[in-house]
Structures are given as structure tokens and as C-alpha cells.
């Protein structure tokens, strides 16, 4: 199962070429929330892994799913699409929240106007307390 207390991030399929950009999604359970902590670079090549990791967490139907982008170093429009996709999959029964701060992630979300659509928090603690 995806849900685990172990902070060691399980890897979604890694790229075959080690020089390719890499993204890793680790899942942690915090009470009624599943936190998907994404580390690395989210571009068009790696976004499908993020879609998969968020989809797996949402499929467990916890009360809250948090996508924590605090350790994301590159964030392209494909990453925004992954978040919007998760937001739509969450529907009414799961609350989908995003942790983003700084120029790499939050600024990109703001420039494209999706901060009005997604619930965005500055820190994981803020996101968990809602």
C-alpha cells in the first residue's frame, strides 16, 4: 500500500537515464490525512509520476490529501495540470490541499491563476490544520 509512516520516499518509476530529471513521491499518513511529499523536478516528462502518486493517495479516499511541493526544484505547467487533475479526482468527499511557497511553485501557480481554484498553504502544518 502507498500509505506508510516511513519517511523514506518510495520511488515512482525512475527514469532509465540517470541524467533525466527525477521526481520522487513519498506518502505519509498524518491522522486522517495522506501527505504526498514530492521531491525533485516536475516537468512534462515526470508529471505522469506525480499524477500516479496523487491518484493512488486519492483512491484510498482519506478525508484529506496534501500534495507537499516544498521540495520541488522545478515546476512547469504539466505540474499544474497534475494538481488540477487531482483536485478534480478528489471531488466532494476528499479535501485536496497543496503546500507551495516561493518562486518555483507558488509564483507559477499564481501567474496561471490556479490559486483561486486550489487550496494552497504555505507550510505542511498549515495544510494539515486546514
Amino acid at each position: 500500500m502507498m500509505s506508510r509512516m516511513d519517511p523514506q520516499p518510495p520511488i515512482a518509476d525512475g527514469p532509465a537515464n540517470p541524467s533525466d530529471p527525477l521526481v520522487v513521491a513519498g506518502v505519509e499518513q498524518h491522522g486522517e490525512a495522506l501527505v504526498v511529499a514530492i521531491v525533485g523536478e516536475i516537468d512534462a516528462l515526470t508529471a505522469p509520476q506525480v499524477v500516479g502518486a496523487l491518484g493512488d493517495a486519492l483512491a484510498q479516499r482519506p478525508r484529506v490529501v496534501v500534495a507537499d511541493l516544498s521540495k520541488v526544484e522545478f515546476f512547469a505547467s504539466a505540474g499544474i495540470a497534475a494538481l488540477v487533475d487531482a483536485h478534480q479526482k478528489a471531488g466532494e468527499s476528499v479535501e485536496f490541499r497543496v503546500v507551495a511557497a516561493g518562486s518555483v511553485t507558488l509564483r507559477v501557480l499564481e501567474l496561471t491563476g490556479v490559486t483561486g481554484e486550489l487550496a494552497v498553504f504555505a507550510t505542511r502544518e498549515d495544510a494539515l490544520s486546514g
Partner: peptide
């Protein structure tokens, strides 16, 4: 707009 719209938006705004 979708994803491609966001890409073009970013190009223009950045």
C-alpha cells in the same frame, strides 16, 4: 485553456 493555455500564459508572463 487547459494545460497548453497555461504554458503560453507562463511564457508571456515570465
Amino acid at each position: 485553456p487547459g494545460n497548453r493555455g497555461r504554458g503560453l500564459t507562463l511564457i508571456h508572463k515570465l
